[in-house]
């Protein structure tokens, strides 16, 4: 019973929160798109291509935030064996991979007109590509073993070890002065970006975050239900007529 007490409470809580996060996401996305595509100026150097920023930068933020969520949940899962933490890590990685992909492709679409190249082995770009492979590795490891708990453990260790890449991404633009421009929002003191551009960027940033929360909650609910289905199936095998059920059920931990 204790194994499902918390997760089933989580399922009910998640189902209650979800319409709100979904609603906030839709409103913020609508506002962000309005300001980003209609009511914000073109950049004096980059012209209208600067509007790619409003999807590129929030994708990058979310790609890193999802990884941090995944690494933190993996750590909790590895240390305290909390089943919910493992499910959160499993639910987060496909979302993170999707947004890393969006970040890489939109960056490429921005890089071609501005830098004259689709891709360069710049430190920021390369560390972002590594992040994408870390996500793919995490998903692959989860399903690489017959025993799901071994997959969870291996994937959790990868997620933790790969976390070193997150500060590398963050500071890559300061450590290696190559092609990608340095941060202009998260600067100590005032951000060096005009408020008319900061507004849509922030709206989209928060919208992407609440989108992540919404999708993550649904995915975790799915994973909890899947775990429950597995548990019931195992029980059926153990208590099937003709099986040595008495012994097996007697051994199962309470």
């Amino acid at each position: 019973m204790h194994r499902f007490a918390n997760p089933m409470r989580f399922v009910r809580l998640a189902a209650a929160i979800q319409p709100w996060t979904a609603g906030v996401t839709l409103i913020l996305l609508a506002l962000g798109l309005y300001f980003g595509l209609f009511d914000s100026p073109a950049d004096y150097q980059q012209g209208e291509s600067v509007r790619i920023m409003y999807v590129h930068v929030p994708s990058a933020w979310l790609a890193m935030a999802a990884y941090s969520t995944m690494a933190f949940a993996s750590g909790v899962g590895l240390v305290w064996k909390h089943p919910l933490a493992d499910l959160i890590a499993k639910a987060a990685s496909p979302i993170g991979a999707a947004f890393t992909f969006v970040c890489l492709v939109t960056g490429s679409l921005w890089g071609k007109p501005m830098w004259g190249t689709w891709w360069a082995w710049d430190a920021r770009l390369t560390s972002m590509l590594i992040l994408f492979f870390l996500y793919l590795g995490h998903m692959a490891l989860l399903n690489a073993f017959d025993d799901p708990t071994r997959g969870t453990k291996a994937a959790g260790i990868l997620a933790l070890a790969g976390f070193v890449n997150i500060p590398i991404i963050k500071f890559s633009v300061d450590w290696w002065n190559t092609l990608h421009q340095p941060a202009s929002v998260s600067k100590v003191g005032m951000p060096t970006i005009d408020p008319s551009m900061l507004l849509p960027l922030m709206l989209m940033g928060v919208a992407f975050t609440t989108f992540f929360v919404t999708v993550l909650l649904i995915r975790v609910r799915s994973e909890i239900l899947a775990a429950k289905v597995r548990a019931i199936r195992l029980n059926q095998i153990h208590s099937a007529p003709g099986a040595i059920s008495g012994e097996l059920v007697g051994e199962s931990p309470r």
């Binding site: 209208e48 291509s49 999807v55 947004f99 679409l109 007109p113």
Partner: peptide
């Protein structure tokens, strides 16, 4: 401003990925 071929695919891809997820 001549960048439509880059701006719109970026937004389209983002939309497709988010709806797909």
């Amino acid at each position: 401003g001549g960048y439509g071929g880059f701006v719109w695919p970026a937004y389209a891809l983002t939309a497709v990925v988010m709806v797909g997820l």
